[in-house]
Design a protein around this nucleic acid. Structure first.
Lengths: 340, 340
DNA sequence: CTGTTAGCGCGTTCAC
DNA sequence: GTGAACGCGCTAACAG
């Protein structure tokens, strides 16, 4: 009995047990036709008896294949990112892939991604939800594997991003059309490019209507989780709006959960939505379908699906040529239940 | 130029470039102290120049180490599972692990898990959210790697589950204490053990108060996503309650989103919560803090964290001995905002 | 301190 | 149809 310590059963054990060579075992494993029914069943029996399962890592190393997408994403449990992940999942279901998720957190996003890359290169990478510096872009190119960006743009990679400026602009324009003039914008407390674009959209809409821009009407909640996109942030922000700008009749929120929080604040103050204060939330329509708000639909699911598909094609070499850059233009959706 | 086709840069390339052996490169990679500063910097330079990144699979194969947890979970994007994942993430952040997520979907959960296992064994596995058959349990034992169960129990594995019966029982008892007698239970349309336990809890609470059990008061929505735990399901279920049992004054819902849907249905019918109909939702308190309901707190995050920790310890051999079975007893939480 | 060599577990030519 | 041998990219003893 010179068995090694607790070593798990390998393809060699199976081969020995079945009285064949490992290549034969490998063949039945990958159901090659070049195996006699007899040996096949013998091998299968040995596999059964030894309760053998091939090693995932060994297999992908030898096969130079990939069985999973790597997804780098900040706070993947946030409702927003979730929609994206649903889309990705919808795609990978058929090819039978898994998701290697690297949660980037919300503080040192870029550092986390670097650490992830140092842990070892992956076969294909989906980077979601934050704009990458040129520095990071180089690191990303270093790993030599297809990379698709979602939520930001960079010339070197395929990307899916959306026009935040136009999104907010159309939302605010909608409110203006409804007769509102005292409109506040709830932003996050990040100074991301995204935020700047949204503020620009807000300004443009006001400008187009001849309404003067008042910077104090752009508010954010206290710093909190999810970089200022949480319910608490929305609640805080709305609360402060009600005290500093009591004449406000409409609000554009930067996310759906923010909008939910804002609504809660209104209720807490005895105000009705949308009669007293109207709200438009920037979000995915699917997320909060029972909340009585209008919203900017980003259809994150579709984006996630497309991004995953693109990555898959790049990896398999089915897609060649220069990086593609898809810019989604968010649409305004008037909720049927907006009279909640 | 006899370079191979598009082969990515390996440790050999770096070694050649730096004029050293691959083992030396490996040493600086794993920052071993046994390297002279001079060679180290030379190697590092070569790494820089070649933009080399070690292969994740090759590394873990050779090292027999693990850099990621595998998590098998049904519909990981549901708000409920999300809380669990948050807890898991909280744990893995420090050891610098990633998450290999296998989304089991919601239809053929067990089959999906089997397919996952066939794709190759993993080093450690977290199975969440559904009870496993003895058959599947064997498969799980076959992969010879530590496995921790969350949301169900099995003698062979460490497990974290909660007492659904007592949970629902306390929720319904609370409603009874509030003076309600016509209480409905919104269940999912799965026939899981969990559901049976919940129904049992409902019955026990009624029985303790001398209220006769009426099976028709246990309702579910139309089959839908998430196995009946969605907003739509809650909406449907409440809608049917209002027509078949208009005398209902209180409802116990099986999940938070269900409760949200139920509330929407009430609003749609001009009813107020909780004045006309009170609701207790079975959920994680963090999930829907702005919804005006009482709830059964499952503190999924803590469970996720503990489960991940247990798995980690098993893998590292820091935890030995028979499987541990933790049974969480859900607590009732009266929401401060329950007058929304 | 550094290079050589043997694996890690499996896929994949090649001959037989 | 089947087996021996090599390679995937890297780590880990051994030597020197």
């Amino acid at each position: 009995m010179s068995r090694k310590e607790k070593t798990s059963v390998t393809i060699y054990d199976v081969a020995r047990r079945a009285g064949v060579a490992i290549s034969t075992v490998s063949r039945v494993l990958n159901d090659s036709p070049d195996v006699s029914d007899r040996t096949r069943s013998e091998v299968n029996q040995a596999i059964e008896e030894l309760r053998y399962h091939p090693s995932r890592t060994a297999r992908s190393l030898a096969q130079q294949e990939y069985h999973s997408f790597a997804v780098a994403i900040p706070s993947f449990t946030s409702p927003f990112q979730n929609e994206l992940l649903k889309g990705i999942r919808a795609f990978i279901r058929e090819p039978g892939l898994d998701l290697l998720i690297c949660d980037l957190g919300s503080k040192n996003v870029e550092g986390s991604l670097r650490a992830f890359l140092d842990r070892g290169a992956v076969r294909g990478l989906l980077v979601c939800g934050f704009s990458i510096s040129d520095d990071l872009a180089e690191d990303l190119m270093d790993i030599q594997s297809p990379t698709v960006l979602v939520g930001c743009d960079h010339p070197a990679f395929d990307s899916y991003s959306w026009d935040d400026e136009k999104g907010v602009q159309s939302g605010v324009a909608h409110l203006i059309n409804q007769g509102h003039r005292n409109i506040c914008l709830i932003r996050s407390n990040l100074n991301s490019e995204t935020q700047m674009q949204r503020i620009a959209g807000y300004q443009k809409a006001l400008q187009a209507a001849g309404i003067p821009f008042d910077a104090s009407r752009v508010v954010s909640g206290k710093p909190s989780y999810h970089g200022g996109f949480s319910e608490e942030d929305g609640f805080d922000a709305m609360q402060s709006i009600l005290t500093t700008h009591p004449d406000t009749t409409a609000v554009m929120a930067s996310s759906d959960v923010q909008a939910i929080g804002a609504m809660a604040a209104l209720k807490a103050n005895g105000l009705r939505v949308p009669q007293d204060v109207a709200i438009v939330g920037y979000d995915d329509i699917k997320t909060s379908r029972f909340i009585g708000l209008s919203s900017i639909n980003q259809s994150m699911q579709e984006i996630g699906h497309s991004a995953a598909k693109t990555l898959h094609q790049r990896i398999k070499g089915e897609l060649v040529g220069p990086a593609e850059h898809i810019l989604i233009e968010p649409k305004l959706e008037i909720r049927a239940s907006s009279s909640l």
